[in-house]
Simulated scan of single mutants.
Amino acid sequence: MTKKETAQEIGKILDNLYTELPIPLDHKDPYTLLIAVLLSAQCTDKRVNMITPELFALADNPFDMAGQPVETVREIIRPCGLSAQKAKAIVKLSNILIEKYEGKVPAEMDLLEELPGVGHKTASVVMVQAFGKPAFPVDTHIHRLAYRWKLSTGKSVAKTEKDLKKVFPEDEWDRRHLQMIFFGREYCPARGHKPEECPICSKYGRKGMK
Rank of each mutant, 00 (worst) to 15 (best):
K150H: 06
L25Q: 02
L93I: 12
G205L: 11
S124L: 12
Y187K: 05
K92W: 08
S124Q: 04
E186L: 14
R206G: 13
I77M: 08
N95R: 15
A135P: 01
E54P: 03
T160Y: 00
I13T: 09
A146K: 03
G205V: 13
L151R: 01
V138L: 05
K92V: 12
D26T: 09
H27P: 09
P69H: 06
G154A: 00
S124N: 10
R206F: 13
K162H: 07
K155F: 02
Y101P: 03
Q68A: 15
D171A: 04
P116Y: 07
P195W: 01
E75M: 05
A84W: 10
F131H: 11
L58G: 04
K88H: 13
M127L: 15
D45G: 12
L58Y: 07
Q68K: 15
L39R: 00
P69M: 11
S40Y: 00
M209E: 14
G132E: 08
G205I: 10
F183T: 04
G208T: 07
Y187E: 04
C43A: 05
K194Y: 04
R47E: 10
K4Q: 13
F168N: 02
G11F: 06
N61K: 08
Q179G: 02
L97M: 14
E170F: 00
G154W: 00
M209F: 15
A87M: 13
E113N: 14
I23W: 07
D15C: 11
A190E: 07
N16G: 11
I23M: 10
W173P: 01
G117E: 00
P116K: 07
L21H: 01
G11C: 15
K203Q: 12
